[in-house]
Design a protein around this nucleic acid. Structure first.
Length: 416
RNA sequence: GUGGGAGUAGCUCAACGGCAGAGCACCUGACUGUGGCUCAGGGGGUUGGGGGUUCGAAUCCCCUCUCUCACCCCA
């Protein structure tokens, strides 16, 4: 083995890719039902897009981006996050169509790259199922995205999914809260963990979700209690809508998210049993991001769902996938003279939309039937000199072993 | 970036200083035109890589790579 896949990446091979396709298909079907359109953006973007949107002081920017220079000297970065590229594309393609209030609903299924140390549920290339709604400040939209994710997880059979909700305020109320928080934290600065001692300067809200410093966080005022009237109303309305739609959620004051662009609603979906990385989805509102990216002031909300973690959660929940479904007809040739005829029949079946194959190793009848069985064909069409002479095939059912003679002309109809 | 655990056949693992093995899988045959069950036989390995100690290393020591779990952080 000369080459190995890069650290933190994975090959998704036949046998496991089917469950990925299944989960993706549920997501796509639901996105369509909810009125979202798919957007596909480049796998890399100008580095600046991430620097300016995600935030200079976030871990993603500070130590996790896959940044490289192309031959033209441009600094590019592999997609570190889904929202910024979507917003960029929204502006660049004028999806808002000159109507600033137009509600544009986008979804994506895309690989995300972060230079992290891999562990359970964490990869350097992972995949996110994302939703973004641009143009609406309404709390019902926040609730729609959360409800979508909740229903998606239900549909996939995940039990015990926790929905954690919070508000990180807006430029009107957050700064005042940050001042209060900083003041309280300064009192016990020496007791905070090393990270928080710097965080309190660079990104004060992040202190709230530090696992080590929760004792001190508990003494500080809660952000949700310090919101301005508009942010408070918004949070209450999101909760009310979720309640209306029967989505259970818990207010959690430590949810602040790791990206700088969030305003008002911040939320996270967690599930136990898949390791330390328990978050299977997260997102929030970003009312300032579009403007920051050079557009007119436009509100937005979004979510990213971790595909690998959803798959992990399904496995942990004991959900079996793709048991032993059989389909198609394997063509078995008997005798040297039958191979060409078998090949022709195989292509006829394929052209008729019937899964089919032959044994290119031209082995014995026994070996061919074994192959048909292990490749999960539901039947085998046996062609020997005898059958060819009479214009028939011996059609063997691979489940019960019963065999009948079918004329070549009726075969396709019979199998369709 | 930091710390713990682990790398032996395609897979799961044994051998723990003395001839590298088992189960499963794969291939062939018993059954020369009938898969699964059974039985018999067969192919498969630079023991992750490099260096060192030793008469002798999968085994002990050092380095390195990878996997894995956790911290940090995120999906």
């Amino acid at each position: 083995m000369t080459y190995k896949r890069p650290v933190g990446t994975q090959d998704i091979v036949p046998g496991v890719v089917e469950e990925w396709q299944y989960v993706e298909s549920i997501f796509r079907a639901m996105a369509d039902d909810y009125g979202y359109g798919e957007i596909r953006t480049p796998i890399f973007e100008d580095t600046d897009l991430f620097l300016r949107s995600v935030g200079q002081e976030t871990d993603i920017v500070r130590k996790e981006m896959y940044t490289f220079e192309d031959r033209g000297g441009r600094s590019l970065t592999l997609r570190a996050e889904g929202t910024a590229p979507a917003v960029r594309a929204y502006l660049e393609n004028n999806l808002w169509n000159q109507d600033r209030e137009r509600v544009v609903k986008l979804y994506y299924v895309a690989p995300i790259f972060r230079y992290d140390r891999p562990q359970a549920g964490r990869y350097r290339q992972h995949h996110q199922l994302g939703l973004e709604v641009l143009g609406s400040p309404r709390p019902e939209v926040d609730a729609e995205i959360i409800t979508f994710a909740w229903n998606f997880f239900q549909r996939l059979g995940l039990q015990g999914v926790q929905v954690l909700l919070n508000s990180v305020g807006c430029p009107l109320c957050t700064p005042a809260y940050v001042q209060k928080l900083t003041a309280v934290m300064q009192e016990s600065l020496g007791d905070l963990c090393a990270d928080c001692q710097t965080r309190i300067q660079t990104n004060p809200l992040r202190v709230l979700d530090c696992k080590l410093c929760q004792d001190y966080v508990a003494r500080a005022p809660r952000l949700a209690d310090e919101l301005c009237g508009e942010c408070d109303d918004h949070l209450v309305a999101v909760q009310a809508t979720l309640n209306l739609l029967a989505v259970p959620c818990t207010l959690d004051h430590t949810i602040v998210r790791g990206l700088d662009y969030y305003t008002k609603t911040a939320f996270e979906f967690r599930v136990e049993g898949i390791g330390a990385q328990a978050s299977i989805g997260g997102g929030g509102r970003y009312d300032g991001l579009v403007e920051q990216c050079g557009g007119k002031p436009t509100p937005g909300v979004g979510i990213g769902i971790g595909l690998e973690r959803v798959l992990l959660a399904r496995r942990h929940a004991g959900i079996e996938f793709g048991a032993d479904q059989r389909d198609g007809t394997f063509v078995v040739a008997l005798g040297d003279g039958a191979w060409n005829e078998a090949l022709k029949l195989c292509y006829e079946l394929r052209a008729a939309g019937i899964r089919s194959d032959v044994d290119y190793r031209r082995r014995s009848l026994k070996a061919q039937l074994r192959l048909a069985d292990s490749e999960r064909y539901v039947s085998a069409a046996i062609l020997g000199d005898d059958e060819i002479a009479r214009g028939v095939v011996s059609l063997k059912n691979m489940v019960d072993g019963e065999q009948t003679e079918v004329s070549r002309s009726e075969l396709i109809v019979r199998l369709s």
